[in-house]
């Protein structure tokens, strides 16, 4: 599958950036701060058996992944730590919890839905279709990508915590 040209990649990254900022601003009244954008170079997980020096904490981070198809194919993933997930959920629906529960997972799924739905709206000419979001109890250190794609990692600050969006798309 062909990689995206820089022009198209910029348009997509801007669409997702606008969408996630709008989502946080409108839905919970919080402004995101962009920290940095990088190309993902190491496409293998950086914990577990791939890096024995780092402990594996299965429940400290959470990721929602939404697949896209159409003229662009791949996925958009939003990774955050548990505290950020709880903060998002509390602000969104007044649900207070000290641990991950089904409501938090539903709220993070909805975040994936709204962000990718907003990006789809901004990329109308790409004729995109969204898949159902799924949630992993794992963070960015456990994500892996095929060598055929060149994902972008966009880091934001949310409530004093790090939140990352991974854009992994190719043209169909």
């Amino acid at each position: 599958m062909p990689l995206l040209s820089l022009d198209i990649e910029t348009v997509i990254a801007n669409a997702i950036d606008s969408s996630i900022r709008e989502t946080f601003s409108l839905m919970i009244g919080q402004e995101l701060t962009h920290v940095q954008t990088n190309r993902v170079v190491n496409k293998m997980p950086t914990v577990g058996k791939y890096n024995q020096n780092r402990p594996v904490d299965y429940d400290e981070e959470i990721t929602v992944v939404v697949g896209l198809s159409g003229q662009l194919q791949g996925s958009v993933s939003v990774c955050m730590d548990l505290e950020s997930a709880l903060l998002w959920t509390e602000n969104l629906i007044d649900h207070q919890s000290a641990t991950l529960d089904q409501t938090v997972i539903d709220a993070i799924s909805e975040l994936g839905n709204i962000v990718t739905g907003g990006a789809k709206r901004r990329l109308e000419d790409r004729d995109l279709a969204l898949g159902l979001p799924y949630v992993m109890l794992a963070g960015k250190s456990r994500l892996a990508f095929p060598s055929s794609c060149e994902p972008l990692q966009v880091e934001y600050a949310f409530g004093g915590h790090e939140m990352n969006v991974f854009i992994s798309l190719t043209t169909a």
Binding site: E22, T23, L26, M27, G29, N113, I114, G117, G118, K120, R121, E124
Partner: peptide, 28 residues
Amino acid sequence: TETEKSQVLLAIQAGVNDYLVKPFDQET
């Protein structure tokens, strides 16, 4: 989240009176 003209037209033809686009704030 659907706001494409063709989709909006489909909804109106089906009998929808108004639209609320996600995301939205409480005021909207």
